[in-house]
């Protein structure tokens, strides 16, 4: 009864969410079952977009590049974020100066728009005589590196740029998590003679595990959706060496005007994201349960 009285108050919000979020998603799903395109009138309902995606190997190749990109980005973002946050906590305990500066500097990378990060890394990895990284490498006797024009190196370059961009988010999440671990646990372990390595393995990591899992899922979702930075850095090239799924969707819709094909690829990405979101919600509930119990 009370719920029934509250419902009318939520109608505007439901309308906004329905119109601006749910309807567009449903329309994308509908479009994925058509051959709609902006350059030809009308469309038919068909499974062709999905069939073509599987038959030509387009999905397989793009998915593989995306998985490599996501896997290495996520692993290194998580690890680097963890080590930087540990270092900051240690710095704070030792009352070292500059921990706030380090935190701010790392966060600045996260706050920057992806396109700008792409441009910055493009300038760094420039292969012309004015390229910064190649110049520095030449000073230590390392030859010219084709950062962006070699298909295999270009993928590594894109991953490195993305790790640089995303580490801050992991760092800040894990910094917050580390702050919640009671000092008493570490003090008791020290009394028992535990080395710093054992304290890390037996206290820090287990206490942080639920948060690390949530962190992992959030950055996985975000990395799967990355395209702006890659668009500015390599445009998906050379060839299709750095074409991840989100970039492929953008290309299909805004470059080749294929609504059906682009929507089909978007639905595949949506399914991956929904799976991740489902795992995230399960983990969040488990974390909440652990906190309240």
């Amino acid at each position: 009864m009370r719920n029934a009285r509250a419902l009318p108050w939520f109608v505007p919000l439901i309308l906004v969410v329905g119109l601006l979020y749910v309807y567009p998603v449903l329309d994308v799903v509908r479009l994925s079952f058509t051959n709609a395109g902006l350059l030809h009138p009308g469309y038919q309902y068909t499974l062709r977009s999905y069939v073509d995606m599987l038959r030509t190997g387009d999905l397989g190749q793009t998915l593989w590049i995306t998985i490599v990109f996501v896997f290495f980005s996520v692993v290194f973002q998580l690890l680097l974020g963890f080590f930087i946050s540990l270092a900051i906590i240690a710095g704070e305990q030792l009352k070292l100066r500059g921990t706030v500066v380090v935190r701010t500097a790392v966060l600045a990378a996260w706050a920057m728009p992806g396109v700008m990060i792409g441009i910055i890394w493009r300038m760094l990895m420039d292969e012309s005589p004015s390229g910064i990284l190649n110049f520095l490498l030449s000073k230590v006797g390392i030859g010219h590196v084709a950062f962006l024009s070699s298909p295999s190196v270009a993928l590594v370059s894109v991953i490195v740029a993305n790790i640089w961009r995303g580490t801050a988010f992991s760092m800040i999440m894990q910094y917050a998590g580390l702050k919640t671990i009671p000092d008493e646990l570490y003090e008791a372990a020290k009394v028992d003679g535990a080395t710093s390595w054992r304290r890390l393995v037996h206290i820090t990591v287990p206490m942080m595990a639920p948060l690390l899992m949530v962190n992992l899922i959030l950055i996985t979702i975000s990395t799967f959706n990355t395209f702006d930075m890659i668009m500015a850095l390599t445009g998906g090239g050379p060839g299709r060496a750095t074409e991840v799924m989100a970039l492929s969707i953008y290309d299909r819709i805004f470059h080749t005007y294929e609504l059906g094909g682009g929507a089909a690829m978007a639905v595949v990405l949506l399914v991956i994201n929904l799976l991740m979101a489902w795992v995230y919600m399960r983990m969040s509930r488990r974390t909440e349960g652990m906190t309240t119990s």
Partner: peptide, 17 residues
């Protein structure tokens, strides 16, 4: 044309690389 251009951009870039 747009599809053709996109596919040929990939081809040109692949040949040069």
């Amino acid at each position: 044309y747009s599809d053709m251009s996109n596919n040929m951009q990939i081809a040109i870039s692949s040949v040069i690389s």
